[in-house]
Design a protein around this nucleic acid. Structure first.
Length: 693
DNA sequence: CGCATGTGGATTTTT
DNA sequence: TCCACATGCG
């Protein structure tokens, strides 16, 4: 085997890490320093040079993506490799799952080997059922998930006292038993149960290797500890500068903790191969403890700072800029646009779509995250099961898609069908959607096609066509119906049974089908949050909205502030050749302040392209004043223009859906139209598809 | 039902 | 800091 060749390709730091044989070793790996390469080389080296079987290694990652990357590289290096050899390779959860299914005696805790893994949503549904059946007093049910999580994490009997004097601990206990009875485990149960059983079952892995160790939570650290025997060697790779998920429960100083707990030797991987040295020097300004980040590349182009009036203007600018970059020969997939909040993607999506720039958005989208689909699923839930009162109430009282009534009114309607049969008929006349849901079971047997369902419910009536969401809603609903039809067909069930089955596993299924995963192979510009950018790299990176209140996000404590800085650090270090930062004079998000974030001033002016940036010594007060003045000027001008338009003429427009109407308001972004038959509607101007008459 | 008070979230997300 | 929602009393 040619592992020697692989070792030759490594630099001295990497090689030292791979060859290290201390009982415990923590590698402090900088961004872009070949962390995964070291990890893979290490396993290969142990296997071929030290004759350690892959079965004696446990390799833990946080995401499936990272796990697959490692497994694929290993399999590619050796065709004779069997998948079963790599059962100890995977995410913390999947390795725990493997142990529970194949190694640990789970009968001891009441489970059977065929147990199912359930999504958090299903666990919550089970909890709600228990509350109803046992008539438990539970307060703040809207925060049930958080409250249960908290209750379940308390182990000492004497600490099990509810803050609100309700039966949350009783619920936690009943839920635990019910999950055992139904033979189901939630994600966190996998680790919790594995940890519990590992107390009495000694695993003897020769090596435990951990990727991105800085993200570990307490349960994961416990898992490592319980897997480890006296003779097990530990090798962990991580970067304290890339802790951006501490809000999810990872303690801040994992690397430090581990180092002391196992008296680990500390190595480092300082050399960055990814970014130009200008970008790296800027990145250094945002590092925590001034760790040595060594570059290996030429200075490259300077960092560009741009000021845009608002996000819409920026999106338009980016279209031109990206087109220009693309025309110079660079594929779209080497370009990425980052932002702090998910909803900032919308403007880019709209403008890119309009201008035919291919793009992909990274977003975890389950059915529940899309309001229209969430509503449709609840509609089906109530249609199939009239006892699902909460779903029925949701359908009728939803602000966007419902019948325009309050929850209390909806509750009366939904419940009254059982108490007062005479009123039912008047209600049915009034709320068509309610009738449709009631009659669904008797009429659904005739349904075999997608549009039959769509037309049966007349969804077009309920997804009120406002300019920005109507088409998306319709597309999503059709996509969902399509998935359901295929699911029913595949399961060879009757439509009714198939739908019921689908609804029961909708959350789980939805994740797989609706998730828009970023595929690195498709040639498109990537739009994502700074969080989602972790672990990726692009030739051109645009970080947008570097305004006060956005980057950094308005925070309370010092810890959160530091995490924002690390997040910005992660964003900067994704860029290989070109980095552009931009801020808005007039951000549309209400929390965001106009003017550049002080993060921009933290970068030495020497690194910044000077024709686009304001002097670093600028008087902030003066700047703010100028911006304010500019803003009021803009407003005055806009008002004057609006008045002028009003005086000169009343504009008449025509719309495909709404017919004729007259323009009420018309500014840079939005246009408001009063339609003869539909009343007042507001549109984003660029996509309103209005025809001026 | 109405009103006063209590409570915690706001933003990021993987399994 | 402010806002949305849940609770609980009258």
């Amino acid at each position: 085997m040619h592992y020697e060749k692989e070792l030759e390709r490594l630099n001295e730091y990497q090689r030292r890490a791979v060859l290290d044989e201390s009982d415990a070793c923590i590698v402090n790996a900088n961004v872009g320093s070949g962390k995964t390469t070291v990890l893979i080389s290490k396993t290969v080296y142990l296997h071929y040079a030290k004759k350690v079987s892959y079965k004696d290694m446990i390799v833990l990652t946080f995401t499936n993506k990272a796990a697959n990357e490692i497994k694929e590289r290993l399999i590619a290096s050796d065709d004779s490799m069997q998948m079963e050899e790599l059962e100890g390779f995977g995410t913390f959860h999947s390795v725990a799952l493997y142990l529970l299914k194949s190694v640990l005696p789970i009968e001891k805790i009441g489970y059977k080997k065929e147990f199912f893994v359930i999504e958090p949503e299903e666990e919550l549904d089970i909890a709600m059922q228990i509350i109803q059946e046992e008539k438990l007093l539970i307060k703040y049910k809207n925060r049930l998930k958080k409250r249960l999580e908290q209750a379940m994490s308390i182990e000492k009997e004497e600490e099990k006292i509810s803050r609100y004097n309700d039966e949350i601990f009783k619920l936690a206990e009943l839920l635990k038993n019910e999950k055992i009875r139904q033979n189901k485990m939630a994600f966190s149960d996998l680790l919790k149960n594995a940890n519990f059983l590992l107390d009495d079952y000694k695993m003897e892995p020769k090596w435990i290797i951990i990727d991105e160790v800085q993200d570990s939570e307490k349960m994961q650290l416990d898992f490592i500890d319980k897997l480890k025997s006296v003779n097990t060697k530990l090798f962990a790779v991580g970067d304290p500068n890339q802790v951006i998920y501490s809000w999810r429960g990872s303690p801040l100083n994992v690397v430090y903790t581990l180092k002391h707990k196992y008296q680990a030797k500390e190595l480092s991987l300082p050399i960055n191969y990814r970014s130009s040295s200008s970008i790296l020097e800027a990145a250094r300004c945002f590092q925590q403890n001034g760790s040595s980040l060594i570059g290996s590349r030429e200075p490259g182009s300077k960092i560009v700072v741009k000021n845009h009036y608002n996000p819409f203007n920026e999106a338009c600018y980016l279209v031109d800029k990206i087109q220009e970059i693309h025309n110079s020969g660079l594929p779209y997939k080497e370009i990425a646009v980052f932002y702090r909040l998910q909803n900032q993607s919308q403007v880019f999506e709209d403008v890119f779509l309009k201008n035919e720039i291919p793009y992909e958005v990274s977003m975890k989208k389950t059915i529940r995250d899309i309001p229209a689909l969430n509503w449709v699923i609840k509609l089906f839930r109530f249609s199939v099961n009239p006892n699902d009162l909460s779903s029925g109430i949701y359908v009728l009282s939803n602000k966007d898609y419902g019948a325009g009534i309050t929850e209390i009114e909806a509750g009366k309607i939904v419940k009254r069908q059982y108490s007062d049969k005479f009123d039912m008929f008047t209600i049915i006349d009034e709320f068509e959607i309610f009738t449709k849901m009631n009659e669904f079971v008797s009429k659904c047997s005739e349904i075999t096609k997608l549009d039959e369902i769509y037309n049966y419910f007349e969804f077009d009536k309920y997804i009120r066509p406002t300019s920005s969401t109507y088409r998306d809603d319709k597309d999503s609903i059709c996509a969902l119906l399509d998935i359901i039809m295929k699911y029913v067909k595949k399961k060879q069930m009757t439509f009714l049974n198939g739908l019921a089955d689908f609804i029961n596993s909708a959350a789980l299924y939805g994740v797989n089908v609706l998730q828009k995963d970023i595929k690195s192979d498709t040639d498109s510009v990537k739009l994502m949050t700074l969080h989602a950018s972790k672990g990726l790299e692009f030739s051109y990176v645009f970080i947008t909205g570097v305004n006060y209140g956005l980057i950094p996000l308005h925070t309370r404590g010092m810890d959160e502030e530091e995490e924002e800085r690390r997040l910005f650090f992660v964003g900067i270090t994704r860029a290989k050749d070109y980095l552009e930062l931009s801020y808005y004079t007039n951000p549309d998000t209400y929390r965001t302040m106009p003017g550049e974030s002080r993060y921009i001033h933290m970068i030495p002016p020497l690194l910044i392209q000077d024709d686009t940036v304001k002097s670093a010594n600028v008087n902030l007060q003066e700047l703010k004043k100028q911006i304010q003045e500019a803003k009021t000027e803009e407003k005055k001008a806009a008002l004057a223009v609006a008045e002028l338009i009003n005086v000169v003429s009343i504009k008449h427009v025509s719309h495909k859906k709404y017919g004729r109407g007259k323009v009420l308001k018309d500014d840079e972004m939005m246009i408001e139209v009063e339609f003869e038959n539909y009343g007042v509607k507001e549109f984003i101007k660029a996509f309103s598809e209005l025809e001026f008459l």
